[in-house]
Design a protein around this nucleic acid. Sequence first.
DNA 1: GCAGAATGTAAGCGCTCGATTACAAACGGT
DNA 2: ACCGTTTGTAATCGAGCGCTTACATTCTGC
Lengths: 222, 222
Amino acid sequence: MAHQGPERRRNAAETRRALLDAATTLFAERGFDSTTVRDIAGLAEANQALVFRYFGSKEALFEEVMAGVGREQLATTPAERLLATVLRDLLAPAADRDRSLEAFLRSGGSGGAVSAVREQLGEEYARVLRTLTAGPDAALRADLVLAWLLGIGLLRVVAPKEPLSTADATEVTTLVLGAVSTLLERVDRAPAPARAQVSAPAPAAVPAQAPAPAPGRQPQGT
Amino acid sequence: MAHQGPERRRNAAETRRALLDAATTLFAERGFDSTTVRDIAGLAEANQALVFRYFGSKEALFEEVMAGVGREQLATTPAERLLATVLRDLLAPAADRDRSLEAFLRSGGSGGAVSAVREQLGEEYARVLRTLTAGPDAALRADLVLAWLLGIGLLRVVAPKEPLSTADATEVTTLVLGAVSTLLERVDRAPAPARAQVSAPAPAAVPAQAPAPAPGRQPQGT
DNA sequence: GCAGAATGTAAGCGCTCGATTACAAACGGT
DNA sequence: ACCGTTTGTAATCGAGCGCTTACATTCTGC
């Protein structure tokens, strides 16, 4: 990658974008702590001082990364499909996976600002998931679903664990959606009625698998 | 320089143990990266050079912490109870929670040795969970259960998210076990031998609200 | 065409980290 | 009492970090 083509002329907007892209990639691959601004600048083929000129600080850059990438999916996906969409995204090959979730998971013990971003993003996802079920504990059920998604991401991406990390996407989807349908159904305290079928679970809540490549794609420059 | 009490006399074994305890606490609270050897030595009221004398390196210390704490629960808990035990542990107040899982979750993007420890520990848990279900995809189902546990830990401990982080333990247990029973139910052959622990919540398997040290010994010290 | 703003670069500051070293103090066998 | 070993301490090293500064280069309005 010698990069000799169209000489990058002085262009603040483009440089900024290059830095943002590089940061998105690296935060996803290594998390916040293990990514240095020198790495980011290096990948973007820019000077590391520009990170601070354009974003102010490493944390501010992280916030902008997290704000941009994850929100897109959230805004364009109807609630009923969010679960299946996120799941499909999680199970997709690394290349076209949404990076924000990875960054989220890999940025563990970081500082206050990073935690704030994490909380906010989690809140947004949970709010959408909450609409999928009824009852007084809808929010709790939504949190549990979100927790499962995060855990699956953890074992598939961050700390790959066989066989989950290489399992067939359809099979995982089937298993998860089946169990989730049980969770989202209105079950009182009675543990008995838990006999949900994967093929015909909740009516509109869980539009089962469909791992087909959706129309809306996210151009993720590498 | 105060510290006058029962003067810690020169005692390598005790100093080593103090360092190990301090490391266990701090790794759990902040993760591997954010914990410094100076912090550990400070909490243990020891000199930081001793960390290297007794353990060789920070990573080696981490490995010893992870080897010691988590294994205890794993070795003394029968398979049928592991799920409920881990779940109860996860939902317990921070004070008497097992710290290894926290350390596991908070040590995100760290180096190779840390990842190796994580993988190994995850493998052990999954192997036990695997015995809870039958069928060709038992291992995958076990991984999904483990993923859920990790995700719940994530949203309860590492990145606290309302309402899950403060939800009633019994309610969470009920919801999770209900959905997990759907997941773990055998699909095809292999008539169930004695897998009743989950799908029919036997009172023994899920003590749920009773964190009392039941007849079965739980020699968890500290 | 030139002043001033915008953009890019190189150097380095101050700090913290893991790890090492040199040395002092307590211990224990003889 | 002596001496070698064990245990503890202080000082530091070299590297890497986020971030800043001083300066060079290019662009743009007039």
